[in-house]
Amino acid sequence: MSDFTQQPQNQHGSHQPYPGPYGGAPAPQPQPVRNGLGTAALVLGVIGALAGVIPLLFWVAGVLGVLALILGLSGRGRAKRGEAANKGVATAGAVLGLVAMILSVVGAVIVFKAASDVVEEVDKALDSASTAPKDPSTAESGAPAAEETPDGKPLAAGDASVYDDDLQVSVSAPKPVEAGEYAIGHTEGNKVYEVSIVVENGGKKAFASDSLAVSARAGAEGATAEEIFDGDTYGKGFTGTVLPGKKATVKYAFDAPADAKTLTVEVTPGFDYNPTQWELTL
């Protein structure tokens, strides 16, 4: 018997080696690279950041920012596991998503603040529209006395015009005075009359008197009575603020024709107030 085992021969008579004890292992297959999440995050982040620049699109920026942040973080996770090759793109998308979210918050604050300001201005306008003179007879106790006058008729000297915010305006009886040497507004042959205008703040808010306007007409023809400007005596007008419970008095002088029998003084406390007239006997 031979000391070795004869190997099998193939059909050509050559020896064929035995196969090894284990079969050959197959080569590993590469994992598919999925870059879609990172790319989508970048696109959504760019659009969201651009939308965030426009305050009115804050909600668009917020939604896109959240999506970009989620997709960007998911894309980074895939890149770390070797399932994607665009880690930088995914990171940029996540960062832009965060920026879009921040801009959406800023835009929301701007929009809501602007809306609040508009509502406040509308409320002020509505309040101003309702600020009209009250019937003088409805003045509160302690206010300057006022006679009952028909609607549309001017008030008399000493009567008070009381507004809805409890601002009270009154005009004194006219007093003839001499015009100074350097008075402006006086015409030779005319007469000068002084009136005192009193503003009393009976409301709860300070009254800014700088916008108070005064004008006058004289005689039956209603000719304009020029206001007299005479140094520190006449022409300074109302200035400053009248606090609640306080009053301010300013003297005005007007130039009227010598034969004028009446002086009509009109006072408008401010842009939000209706004018009131007083017909004064000269």
Score class of each variant (00 low, 15 high):
residue 12 H to I: 03
residue 127 D to G: 15
residue 99 V to I: 15
residue 236 K to F: 08
residue 131 T to N: 15
residue 26 P to A: 09
residue 34 R to N: 15
residue 7 Q to K: 13
residue 173 A to G: 12
residue 99 V to F: 05
residue 261 K to C: 02
residue 142 G to H: 03
residue 216 A to V: 01
residue 143 A to R: 08
residue 205 K to A: 14
residue 37 L to A: 14
residue 169 V to L: 09
residue 150 P to Q: 13
residue 77 G to W: 08
residue 157 A to T: 00
residue 203 G to H: 07
residue 55 P to M: 11
residue 137 S to A: 15
residue 25 A to V: 09
residue 281 T to W: 00
residue 177 V to E: 08
residue 79 A to F: 02
residue 183 A to I: 09
residue 270 G to H: 05
residue 12 H to G: 02
residue 272 D to H: 07
residue 26 P to T: 09
residue 243 L to F: 06
residue 182 Y to I: 07
residue 24 G to I: 13
residue 14 S to Y: 10
residue 229 F to C: 01
residue 282 L to D: 01
residue 181 E to M: 08
residue 71 L to T: 06
residue 125 A to T: 07
residue 130 S to A: 15
residue 278 W to N: 05
residue 105 V to W: 06
residue 57 L to G: 04
residue 39 T to L: 10
residue 71 L to C: 10
residue 180 G to W: 06
residue 246 K to S: 09
residue 280 L to F: 01
residue 140 E to S: 13
residue 264 T to G: 02
residue 77 G to D: 12
residue 27 A to K: 11
residue 61 A to V: 00
residue 219 G to V: 10
residue 53 V to M: 12
residue 271 F to S: 10
residue 141 S to K: 14
residue 252 Y to D: 00
residue 116 S to I: 02
residue 28 P to D: 09
residue 71 L to Q: 11
residue 209 S to K: 09
residue 157 A to P: 05
residue 1 M to T: 04
residue 87 K to Y: 12
residue 219 G to T: 10
residue 270 G to S: 13
residue 184 I to P: 00
residue 103 L to E: 02
residue 167 L to V: 03
residue 151 D to S: 11
residue 251 K to N: 12
residue 29 Q to L: 13
residue 99 V to M: 02
residue 20 G to D: 09
residue 220 A to E: 14
residue 145 A to Q: 11
residue 129 A to T: 12
residue 140 E to I: 08
residue 213 A to Y: 15
residue 126 L to D: 05
residue 270 G to Q: 06
residue 226 E to Q: 06
residue 87 K to Q: 14
residue 133 P to I: 00
residue 137 S to Y: 10
residue 17 P to F: 02
residue 10 N to Q: 08
residue 228 I to V: 10
residue 204 K to Y: 01
residue 63 V to R: 04
residue 190 N to H: 14
residue 55 P to V: 07
residue 183 A to G: 09
residue 138 T to L: 14
residue 27 A to L: 12
residue 90 A to R: 04
residue 222 G to P: 02
residue 26 P to G: 05
residue 224 T to G: 00
residue 139 A to N: 10
residue 195 V to D: 06
residue 18 Y to K: 03
residue 48 G to Q: 08
residue 277 Q to Y: 05
residue 34 R to I: 13
residue 174 P to G: 10
